[in-house]
Design a protein around this nucleic acid. Structure first.
Lengths: 191, 191
DNA sequence: GACAAAATAGGACAATTGACCTATTTCTTT
DNA sequence: AAAGAAATAGGTCAATTGTCCTATTTTGTC
């Protein structure tokens, strides 16, 4: 089963890239973690950039799937935005250890001047557009994209500092502040 | 002049670590950028971690100096906080290219599980304590540290997204929002 | 000016990296 | 069952890495 091995490689590479960073993760790391030889590995991915592309596409697919699920489950756009905000708590432990998977990858690739950086940033775009849609449904019209970017930025900052200080209390406090901010915005809209 | 060479090494390493990342910068990179041989290089710094320590200490000293200057120049704590917020615009170009020097280093070291990560985080602490002091002077008392962390987090998020999207308009918009937030907080305090 | 110490240069080292190659095994299709 | 394709294993390669070593030059001190 070629697909199975390929998927296992991508799953493992995804995890290692997140935990150790892209550059710090070697072929040998991934191959040994998957339990296959480097030769077999190279049969599925010719270059390291191929794996990176595969990992990013995998993340894009998974993220899209998650956002679609959120779109179905409830029908209050505000609740959906709150779901987004609460990922910070849901993934709190990982975030304190390794930061935000999207932000840290984008930052690393930007520094490496890597061709795939815009690809990684498109993960942000997925969240951005989804958030914008929720704000539009709430009636924020033209302001929706700015609000989406605002909340995306706040999340990034929380993740970075929670990681730097390994501070869970800060993370939870800021999640509450972001929810309060959301309520405020909705309140202001009604006048 | 041993000190002169040492300083030139640290200055160059500081820049390269910021632009390329710590791991992606090699001895050879730094030596050739400074214009000295690797042998001479090794005479000043025995290991790569030694350079990292030196760079972080250099940044700590420079940051402390900058904050002290801000403490002297004006006497309105709110203006000082605004000075901090406006670094985002002042260093906008670099931030869009390479992110925040403090946040990206801390993130990278966290992923590398590097012993110097807390050291890098202490750069954040410098800003945190300075901001806390300004809020205390404004009369926020016990809330000062939380407000300091809040504004620190917002800045980090802005830097991360401005870098990911190379978006100058977003950066300026968020700086305005942070200043408005500050005015709000001060307004709320007066009641 | 002699001499010890510091600074500099350049080479050598083992280890690791991404990349590539060629066998062998396994699977699929007929 | 046979044949071709896909998958796997394991070895090789040049390049780079951090580290270390030994000469040579420069500097500072008496």
């Amino acid at each position: 089963m070629a697909t199975a091995t390929r998927d296992r490689i991508l799953e493992t590479a995804d995890l290692l890239f997140y935990q150790q960073g892209f550059e710090a993760t070697s072929f040998a790391d991934i191959a040994s973690a998957v339990g296959i030889s480097r030769g077999n590995f190279y049969h599925h991915f010719k270059t390291k950039d191929d794996i990176l592309d595969g990992v990013i596409n995998r993340r894009l697919a998974n993220t899209e799937q998650m956002l679609d699920r959120w779109e179905i489950e409830g029908d209050d756009p505000a609740d959906r935005i709150r779901s987004f905000i609460h990922i910070l708590i849901f993934n709190g432990e990982k975030i304190r250890k390794f930061g935000c998977p999207v932000g840290t990858l984008s930052s690393e690739l930007a520094k490496l001047n890597h061709a795939a950086q815009p690809n990684a940033a498109s993960l942000f775009t997925l969240f951005r557009n989804w958030l914008r849609r929720q704000f539009e449904r709430l009636g924020f019209a033209d302001k929706s994209d700015e609000l989406a970017m605002h909340i995306l930025g706040r999340s990034q900052g929380v993740a970075t500092l929670a990681n730097a200080f390994n501070d869970d209390a800060f993370l939870r406090r800021e999640v509450d502040l972001m929810c309060a901010w959301l309520d405020d915005q909705i309140g202001l809209l009604r006048h």
